[in-house]
Amino acid sequence: MNGKWFNFYKKQGKVAKQAHIGFPEDTYEREMGKEGFFGPVTHFYHQNKHTGWTDFQGDIRPRAFDSNLFGSCHGTPWDAHVLMKNNNVKIRLLKMDTSMNHLVRNADGDDLLFLHQGTADLYCDFGHMIIKEGDYLMLPKGTMWRLEVSNPCTVLMVEATNGHYQLPDKGLLGPNAIVDAAVYRTPEINDAFKTQYSTDDWTVKVKRLQKISTINYPFNPLDAVGWQGDLMPVALNWRDISPVMSHRFHVPPSAHTTFLGNRFVICTFVPRLFETDPEALKVPFYHNNDDYDEVLFYHAGNFFSRDNIHPGMMTLHPTGFTHGPHPKAMNNAFKQKNAMTEEVAVMIDTRDPLEVCDAAEQVEWPDYVNSWKETK
């Protein structure tokens, strides 16, 4: 049986005329909602910041990790550090400084690669493509591929375990908004691809149920001379994303959704103009994590809502507590020094709890939870 949300509206006490604009004097707004930012919602106006804890104990504490501390590189994506996982998603950090001498195939789900650093040539069933810093690369389940590294690469890998990647519905914005399909790049059967045809021995490492099988061939199985269809790898650089903006309203992260997985979403925060209305909130609003675990990977720029965060770091805000801007960021809640944000970040919101793996704990910043405390 399909249900529907309660849909009547009530209000009590002093409230803003509308969300994120013109708060009652000396108050802080907190959003409580269902299904991330997609369901019914209530806004509270508090006398104190609900991130102003004096002590925080337990598994749902906010956590931060620094992937820059990983030293070793990997010869295959299947050796990459698994940072967090659940039944629908696995988040890995891959570091490569040499080219792959074999092919890989993921039989567990689609893979999404975000190239944090480096440049590489992708060779796959569908052809050849150059990928570079700032690129997303979506590889459909079953694709055979390898990377030839031009410059050392650091790659955030997000597996849609037993699932697939799709695009969000852009609704009233129309098909050309946020990401125009014209900017997606696809592999080509070009001269570089044809050059690698060979009768040399090749190995394919296939991952299924998180175990590796190997298949050996007396030829390079990337030997297609053509293909046609609507299933293929696609690349997208964050610089080709045109973010949704409002001069009067701080739009929620859901408006920045780039990819949909099974029970998780991936959003991309790219530079945009700050809100110009003097009463409009100009930093992320305080909100509860009541349905989704939230992971942020910081790629580049100045992260205006966070302190002591630099590119290559990752934060986890589990379900169950209120979070939002760090204390110093709230000093600029209604007035910013610059006209635009500068940050580039990848957000992974998961409907099911994430397990933090040993590799992530090795590079954890344990004092992150205390960075929210107010300084006297």
Rank of each mutant, 00 (worst) to 15 (best):
Y165W: 14
D201H: 04
L83C: 00
T143N: 03
K85T: 04
E294W: 06
R351M: 14
F334C: 04
Y286H: 06
Q336N: 08
G171A: 09
P152M: 08
T54G: 04
W145K: 03
D349M: 15
E374M: 08
N308P: 04
H81W: 01
R92S: 01
F193K: 01
N237P: 00
W227N: 05
K328I: 05
A181N: 14
F303H: 10
F193V: 02
Q228R: 13
L139P: 03
F269K: 06
K205L: 07
A181G: 13
N68E: 05
G163C: 04
G142E: 09
L94V: 00
W202Y: 06
E343C: 03
H81G: 00
H247Q: 08
A64L: 13
P77F: 02
P62R: 13
D358F: 10
Y217Q: 08
S72Y: 10
R208L: 11
H20W: 11
K95I: 14
N176F: 14
A19V: 03
A182M: 11
R239D: 13
T161H: 05
M330H: 05
D169H: 15
N88R: 06
V206P: 00
L147R: 01
Q12R: 10
P168D: 07
D223V: 08
V82P: 00
K376C: 02
D111V: 05
N288W: 13
P325W: 14
K282P: 03
Q228P: 02
T42V: 14
G71Y: 09
S72W: 09
P77H: 03
S246Y: 13
K205F: 11
I189F: 09
N176Y: 14
G226V: 09
L231A: 05
P271V: 03
R61P: 01
I348T: 02
Q47A: 03
T319A: 13
H287R: 12
P271R: 02
A280W: 10
V295A: 05
K49D: 07
